[in-house]
Design a protein around this nucleic acid. Structure first.
Lengths: 98, 98
DNA sequence: TTATTTAACTTTGAAAAACAAAGCACTTTT
DNA sequence: AAAAGTGCTTTGTTTTTCAAAGTTAAATAA
């Protein structure tokens, strides 16, 4: 039998990062604060998970302005979309024996 | 918007425990060694994850014999089955926006 | 104009979790 | 008798998680 977890991406073990990705895959330009409120996290915790996702090039940061006020938003990258979908596929395959 | 990760079970963050559950939900009486080989883990690592699942009462250990040789097998409990399914439902809901 | 608040972080440090390696008790195989 | 397998536990290191506090810069309230 083949190892059923071999195709799961370690980065998506964390339900927080899973949550971020599932939000970003349907919403572009979500702000730090939106994510923080949706996922009910502290600043530091969210920032560090966003960092992990950014290092992996699964998300991109956009620093922009609303008027003259800075506004940071996050978006999923092509690689992120692909990796996330691959992870979901692997999950599905693992479970489809049900 | 409702927190999309609130219903995910923290115990199933680990892809190893996810793997164990996905094997046990379809196979009863899987041995330590079977799991170890299927998931490609060291003894210590597997044992500690099995312990976590046992503490949570998601799996049960059966110590038996094959002939006169000891044989330990693992099985999912009703609670384990229920919790695992609830987790998968939560995952599905989180992702169904796709 | 001074004070407070908000956004988006970074830094720090503690606690928890993951993991490999080695040891162990017991049994079977050679 | 020696080697090997099963199912662990113990030990110790590395990694990860997380909260709290500090930071910079702008916006708003007093």
């Amino acid at each position: 039998m083949k190892n059923p977890i071999a195709d799961l991406n370690k980065i998506f073990d964390s339900r927080i990062r899973l949550g971020v990705m599932s939000i970003l895959i349907v919403n572009d330009n979500i702000s730090f604060n939106d994510l923080k409120q949706m996922l009910e996290l502290t600043d530091g915790n969210l920032a560090s998970h966003l960092n992990t996702l950014e290092q992996a090039e699964f998300i991109q940061v956009h620093k922009g302005f609303i008027g003259r006020k800075t506004s940071t938003t996050y978006a999923i990258t092509a690689l992120g979309k692909q990796s996330f979908k691959a992870h979901l596929d692997a999950l599905e395959k693992m479970i489809k024996k049900l």
